[in-house]
C-alpha cells in the first residue's frame, strides 16, 4: 500500500513537471522547425525564423518595449524607494494607512485598471497621450506597488541597530542613509527594479488598451498576430524575448541583486 502511494506520488510529481515544461519545449521546438505547421513530422533544425526577427516588424516593438520597461523600472524604482523610505524608515504619521494606499492598486485587476485609464484619458481629451506616454504611466501604476512592497520589506528586515551603531559612531542622517541603509537594502531595490522591468516588458492586460498603431509593445504585437496564425516566427520571437528577460535578470544579478541578499544581512 505504501509502495503504491509512493509510486503514485512520484508519478504525479513527474506528470506535473512535464505539464509545466511541455509548452516551453514545444515553443522552442517550433521556433527551430522548418515547416510553418507545427507537427510531429520529423524535422530538421533551422535558424531562419530567428533570422527573420531582424526586421523592423519585430525590432520596432521590441525596442519600444525595452524603452518603456526601462523608463518604468527607473521611475517606479525611484518613487518606490522614496515612498518606502518615508513610510517604513521614517515612520511618518499614519504610515500604516499610507502603506495601504500605496499598495491599493494591487487589489484591482489589471484589465479594470486598463479600462479606467483609457476612459480617463479619452474623457479629458488626452487621446494623444495614448501610446508610449500612457503605457509608461499605466505600467508605473502597476509596478510601483510591487517595488514599494519589496523595498519596504527589505527596510523592515533591516536591523535598526546598524543604523543606531552608525549614529553613535557620529554619522549624520544623510551619512547613515548613504553609507549604511542604501547598501543594505540595495538587493531589495534591485529586485524591485528588475521585477518592474519584467512586468512592464511582458504586460498585456493594461497595454492592450493603450497601444496605438505604430506605437505598440512586443507582447501586444505578438498576440495581435497570433489571432490569425501560428507562424513559427512567433515562436522565435517568444524564445528570443524570454532569452532577453533572462539576460536582464542575469545583468541585475551581476550588479549585486538577489543572491547578495543571501550573504548580506547581519543574521
Amino acid at each position: 500500500m505504501n509502495r503504491l502511494i509512493s509510486i503514485f506520488y512520484w508519478f504525479s510529481l513527474g506528470a506535473v513537471l512535464c505539464f509545466i515544461t511541455l509548452p516551453l519545449i514545444v515553443v522552442v521546438a517550433a521556433s527551430l522547425s522548418p515547416t510553418s505547421a507545427v507537427t510531429l513530422q520529423p524535422w530538421e533544425w533551422t535558424g531562419r525564423w530567428y533570422a527573420d526577427l531582424w526586421s523592423s516588424r519585430w525590432l520596432d516593438p521590441f525596442l519600444a518595449s525595452v524603452k518603456i520597461a526601462t523608463v518604468v523600472a527607473a521611475i517606479s524604482g525611484v518613487l518606490g524607494l522614496f515612498a518606502a523610505y518615508a513610510v517604513v524608515y521614517e515612520r511618518i504619521p499614519g504610515s500604516d494607512a499610507l502603506m495601504s494606499c500605496l499598495l491599493s492598486p494591487l487589489s484591482v485587476p489589471q484589465i479594470v485598471k486598463g479600462v479606467a485609464v483609457v476612459l480617463f484619458l479619452s474623457m479629458i481629451g488626452l487621446q494623444g497621450f495614448l501610446g508610449t506616454p500612457a503605457l509608461i504611466a499605466a505600467h508605473v501604476v502597476l509596478a510601483l506597488p510591487f517595488v514599494t512592497r519589496m523595498v519596504a520589506t527589505s527596510l523592515a528586515n533591516f536591523d535598526a541597530n546598524l543604523d543606531r551603531a552608525a549614529q553613535v559612531l557620529g554619522a549624520s542622517k544623510l551619512q547613515r542613509i548613504r553609507l549604511v541603509v542604501l547598501p543594505m537594502i540595495k538587493p531589495g531595490v534591485l529586485s524591485g527594479v528588475t521585477f518592474a522591468f519584467i512586468i512592464s516588458f511582458n504586460n498585456i492586460p493594461l497595454s492592450v488598451f493603450l497601444v496605438r498603431p505604430g506605437d505598440s509593445t512586443l507582447p501586444i504585437t505578438v498576440i495581435n498576430y497570433l489571432e490569425y496564425s501560428l507562424d513559427p516566427v512567433l515562436a522565435a520571437v517568444n524564445v528570443a524575448s524570454m532569452a532577453f528577460i533572462l539576460a536582464v535578470i542575469f545583468l541585475f544579478e551581476k550588479i549585486g541583486g538577489f543572491s547578495a541578499q543571501l550573504h548580506g544581512g547581519s543574521k
Binding site: 541597530n161 546598524l162 543606531r164 551603531a165 553613535v168 547598501p183 543594505m184 548580506g264 547581519s266
Partner: peptide
C-alpha cells in the same frame, strides 16, 4: 559615546 550591541550590529557590507 561608544555602544556595543547585543547582536554586535556590525556593518555586513
Amino acid at each position: 559615546i561608544g555602544l556595543v550591541f547585543q547582536n554586535y550590529a556590525l556593518f555586513p557590507h
